[in-house]
Amino acid sequence: MKKTITILEDDLDIRDICTLIFESEGFVVHGYGTVANFSIDILPTDIFLLDVRLPDGNGIDVCRMLKADERFSKVPIIIMSAHINPLLHEQNYGEDLFITKPFNLDYMLEQVELLIDNHRDNL
């Protein structure tokens, strides 16, 4: 069964690179640039990858919304940001992992695979 990742990232270059990498690894990728488009069309997924700063909201609020929704509460979430210092990131927003930008693509892929495998093992 193919793994699915949903990416909420307003930077088209980052979204395109992530899409290319994950599709080359056999993922089905759903990509969105705004909270409005994402919120209208949330599809079943194995993992969410959320940027913090978005033109019409932020990934932290989206993370909280997803974790409060019974359909998505157990789905792993990675939050990524270039604007939050990881050393000062003491508050957990409900995410399973926080990654700073710029990030290593191999590390991102490895963490996504790990989180999905752990999630599937706990179903």
Rank of each mutant, 00 (worst) to 15 (best):
E90T: 15
I116Q: 01
I99N: 08
S81M: 07
V75R: 01
F103L: 13
I60W: 10
E95F: 11
D69M: 04
E110N: 14
Y107D: 15
I77K: 00
G31C: 04
L123Y: 07
V29R: 06
T34E: 00
I60D: 06
H89V: 01
L109Y: 08
K3M: 10
M1R: 10
N58Q: 03
M1N: 10
V112A: 12
M80E: 11
D10C: 09
E90M: 14
I77Y: 01
E23H: 02
Y32Q: 01
P86N: 10
N118I: 07
H89P: 06
F48D: 00
G26E: 04
F22H: 07
I21S: 02
E70G: 09
V75A: 03
D96R: 03
D117C: 09
R15W: 07
D51G: 00
E110K: 15
R120G: 00
I99S: 03
I21H: 08
V112Q: 05
I116V: 12
P102H: 13
K3A: 11
D61H: 07
K2Y: 13
D13W: 09
A82K: 09
I14K: 08
T100C: 03
D46E: 08
F103A: 10
F27Q: 03
L50P: 00
H83R: 06
P76G: 05
G33E: 10
L97Y: 08
V112I: 14
R53S: 08
I21E: 04
H30D: 11
S81P: 04
T100E: 06
R15M: 05
H83W: 11
L50N: 04
I17H: 01
F22D: 05
I7C: 05
S24V: 01
L114C: 10
N85M: 12
V35L: 02
